[in-house]
Structures are given as C-alpha cells and as structure tokens.
Amino acid sequence: MIDILREVGMIERALDSMSNIEFKQIGLARGQYLYVVRIYEHPGIISEQLSNLIKVDRTTIARAVKKLEDKGFIKRRSDPQNKKIKRLFVTEKGKKIYPFIIRENQHSNAVALRGFTDEEAQQVHDYLVRIRHNIDGDWDLVKHGGKREY
C-alpha cells in the first residue's frame, strides 16, 4: 500500500517550519498564523467551530486563543443572545498581518505546484479534499472519546 500520509506529513512539517521562522518577524509563534487566518476568514467563529476547522483539540484552541489575545491579534466578544458563548474576531493588528500571511501561502502553493498544469493542480486539490473527508469521521469519533478499530 502506498503511504501517502508520510509524504503529506513531510510537506506539512516543512511548510509549517518555514512559516514559523518567517512569521517570527510579525510576532507570531509556532502555528499561530493558522488561527489568525481562520478567525479572519470566519469572523465571529466560536472555539468549537475553530477546533473542527483546524483539526486540533479544544485545549489547544483555548491556549492559542489566549496567547493571540494577549498579543493583541484577536479578541473575544460575548454573543449578544447568549453571553456564555465567546465569539472570536481579529483586531486591527491581526488584520494588518493577514495579507503577509496570505502572500506566504500563495508563494508556498506556487512552489508546491511548480510544473503542474491547472488541471493537475485541481486534481491534487480534489484528491486531498476527498482524503480529508475520509478522515473527518475518525477525527470526530476520537475527538469525542471513541476508539478506532485497526
């Protein structure tokens, strides 16, 4: 069987490592850029939704949100209908760094897809989306305390 996940993992770790180095200059630590981008793109998102979007547990979300809030990149606001619900938004400081993060992402995409036709790039995208959908069920099961059968 082809072990595609090793290749995906190596790609992800290489890109994440480069991003972490480059984003230090704008005050972001390991992986924080991802939270800023997702909150920017989904203003008012709640932690549970962010957890599902990024595929990390709620504890990790809570720590990351707290750190980004302390640095002034994001803010929490109570939901007008239910004060217990905290909605996440980027601040002006967060909005200013978004274009830099997106430029890095576009550059990395261009490098990764160098030599691919538009059709091939679309196929890669479609296959990766299918793979993610295949994994979503297991993610949800394990996240809610279930056990996968190997």
Rank of each mutant, 00 (worst) to 15 (best):
I2L: 12
I2S: 15
I2F: 09
I2K: 04
D3M: 12
I4L: 08
E7T: 10
E7F: 15
E7D: 15
G9P: 01
M10C: 09
I11V: 13
E12L: 14
E12M: 12
S17L: 12
S17W: 06
S17E: 07
N20A: 02
F23N: 00
F23T: 11
Q25S: 14
Q25N: 06
I26G: 00
G27L: 02
L28C: 00
L28A: 02
G31D: 00
Q32I: 15
L34F: 14
Y35E: 04
Y35C: 05
V36I: 13
Y40W: 01
Y40P: 00
E41A: 06
H42P: 00
G44P: 11
I45H: 04
I46N: 03
I46Q: 14
L50V: 02
S51Q: 07
S51P: 04
N52G: 15
N52A: 14
I54D: 00
I54K: 02
I54Y: 14
K55W: 12
V56P: 00
V56A: 07
D57A: 15
D57F: 14
D57S: 01
T59W: 08
A64T: 14
V65K: 01
V65Y: 02
K66S: 03
K67S: 11
K67V: 09
K67C: 07
K67G: 03
L68N: 01
L68T: 01
D70M: 11
K71E: 07
K71H: 07
F73M: 02
I74Y: 00
I74M: 10
K75M: 08
K75L: 06
R76E: 09
R77Q: 11
S78F: 09
S78A: 09
D79S: 15
N82S: 08
K83G: 03
I85E: 08
I85K: 10
I85Q: 07
L88N: 01
E92L: 13
K93Q: 04
K93F: 06
G94F: 00
K96C: 04
K96M: 04
I97T: 13
I97R: 05
I97C: 02
P99H: 02
F100E: 11
F100Q: 12
I101R: 00
I102Y: 05
I102V: 13
R103S: 12
E104V: 10
Q106E: 03
S108G: 05
N109Q: 15
A110T: 10
A110E: 13
V111P: 10
V111G: 05
A112H: 06
A112F: 14
R114I: 14
R114Y: 05
R114A: 07
F116S: 06
F116D: 04
T117W: 12
T117I: 14
E120W: 08
E120R: 00
Q122F: 12
V124P: 02
V124L: 09
H125I: 02
D126N: 04
D126P: 11
R130K: 12
R130Q: 10
R132Y: 03
R132E: 05
H133E: 12
N134W: 07
N134D: 07
I135Q: 07
I135H: 05
D136S: 10
G137D: 08
W139L: 10
W139I: 13
D140T: 15
L141M: 13
V142S: 05
V142Q: 03
V142Y: 11
K143I: 04
G146L: 15
R148G: 13
R148P: 04
E149A: 03
